[in-house]
């Protein structure tokens, strides 16, 4: 049986390549049919904000890539409720909000954890 991996994405989408590179790890795992979870934590929850204007920053829209998650069979996508509230963001449609306690329990469920 495959070992499961939780990727914790903690960087805002426009703060450098980290958000994209975290997503790349997740999508690569999905491509190999591995059990992968993705948690948006701290500034990582900014990746879930709607109606971002990447062009204004002369960037590619990394948030559009989140739509690829389901295509790669990644359905365990979570967001930290506390991080969302701290930043004034509404609960997202594409990630399940979790309390700090739920996050602790979830981290225990995965075999390996990688924070980017």
């Amino acid at each position: 049986m495959s070992r499961s991996l939780l990727v914790i994405s903690r960087q805002a989408p426009w703060s450098g390549p980290s958000a994209r590179e975290a997503l790349d790890v997740v999508l690569a795992g999905g491509a190999f049919d591995l059990p992968i979870g993705l948690l948006f934590l701290d500034d990582g929850v900014f990746q879930l904000a709607t109606a971002q204007d990447a062009k204004a920053l002369q960037q590619k829209d990394v948030t559009a890539n989140l739509q690829a998650l389901s295509l790669f069979g990644i359905d365990e996508v979570f967001a930290c409720s506390h991080s969302l509230a701290e930043r004034g963001l509404s609960p997202p449609d594409n990630a399940q909000p979790l309390s700090s306690e739920q996050i602790s329990q979830m981290i225990d469920r995965y075999d390996q954890v990688m924070t980017l």
């Binding site: 495959s2 991996l5 903690r10 960087q11 980290s18 190999f32 591995l34 390996q112 990688m114 924070t115």
Partner: peptide, 19 residues
């Protein structure tokens, strides 16, 4: 793929650095 392959092979993944 080499990262995922190593994760499957190893007992423990240890990460250093990052934010």
């Amino acid at each position: 793929g080499q990262l995922h392959d190593a994760i499957q092979d190893a007992d423990r993944l240890i990460c250093f650095g990052g934010p």
